[in-house]
Write a protein that binds this DNA or RNA. Structure first.
Lengths: 184, 184
DNA sequence: GTCTATATACAGATAGAC
DNA sequence: GTCTATCTGTATATAGAC
């Protein structure tokens, strides 16, 4: 992968996390990386190509971060706290999770990007389910690891979405306290 | 308020719940209600005017529905279930909550619409806090009513966002089971 | 790989007739 | 209140030179 291609991809992800894919244009990307829009089309023929590459790239990077967390943190509350911190960092930059943002834009996405999006959520939920199952005995609530994993990701995506409107992190913090009340 | 104005508003809300405000155009709205785009501009001079009216209208209707639920359901699990059903109905139509959708589009909203958006979330969270406080003794978890209200709304907004991508309601259902496990 | 130039479509918004 | 007509800006995408 050429340097320019990677630079365009990185720029597109950053812009989409803040403004959404619909507001990101080939012209704007071209200006930001210092080329013409036709050169962006050389690397990503259509916007659908760009969108799919963004989601796949983001998913790989996110999965790597999840593995880091699993390796560094030994307790379930520690792992959840670390995940909350990932979302808190995105929120502090006034951004959303790329895939949460694109989920809102679902009706304008092509089938391949939609599939890549589903994969992101599946991978993240599978990681959560695995971590929860590993610490089953610590749960203070009668709920399957799968259900709990789904609710945790939904709550985090919703919390960052709503918190950004308030330019605060009250909901992420409330989630953090709830997690501590349930897990430990 | 004239009939046409109300019809435009209703049409705009329906389209925005599915596609987002950015994809909704004055031309498209005009076609759908059978007038020309300049006539839509007569009722809503700018897109910001339209957006703010949509959020206020939606908030009023939603608040009325919350009051209905409070009046009809006597138990906290019953109230939460009824709220989940509201979101499930929106999801079944392949839509999102209007304000969840517009929260994703925050960076393209004017200040007044942003304020109206904050009001929607505040009103809904306040209702939840009130209902939870009313049934404090039923809680199986050590968490403030305010925190729990915030997490519940975040989880519902996130669940509908992610579930729509999968054309399923797995996360809303998982939330429902979690609520039952916590609330009794 | 990047450029100039362009085709085509659609966006928000407004002037002025009726 | 609604219309016709139009201004201005921007979008995705492509052809063909270098």
């Amino acid at each position: 992968m050429s340097d320019k291609r990677a630079e365009i991809l990185e720029t597109a992800v950053r812009a989409t996390k803040r403004d959404g894919l619909r507001k990101v244009s080939f012209r704007q990307l071209a200006d930001q990386v210092g080329v013409k829009s036709s050169s962006v089309h050389y690397h990503f023929p259509t916007k659908a190509d760009l969108a799919e590459s963004m989601v796949r790239d983001y998913t790989d990077a996110f999965a790597a971060r999840l593995e880091d967390i699993a390796a560094c943190e030994s307790t379930l509350p520690g792992k959840i706290d670390a995940l909350v911190q990932v979302f808190a960092d995105v929120l502090a930059a006034d951004d959303l999770c790329l895939c949460g943002m694109m989920a809102a834009e679902l009706s304008t996405l092509d089938a391949r990007t939609g599939h890549a999006l589903r994969q992101f959520f599946r991978v993240t939920e599978d990681w959560l389910t695995e971590q929860i199952d590993m610490h089953r005995q610590d749960l203070r609530i009668d709920l399957s690891a799968k259900d709990l994993g789904k609710v945790i990701l939904a709550a985090l995506e919703g919390a960052i979405l709503l918190d950004r409107v308030d330019r605060d992190s009250e909901r992420l913090q409330a989630f953090s306290r709830m997690a501590r009340a349930i897990l430990d």
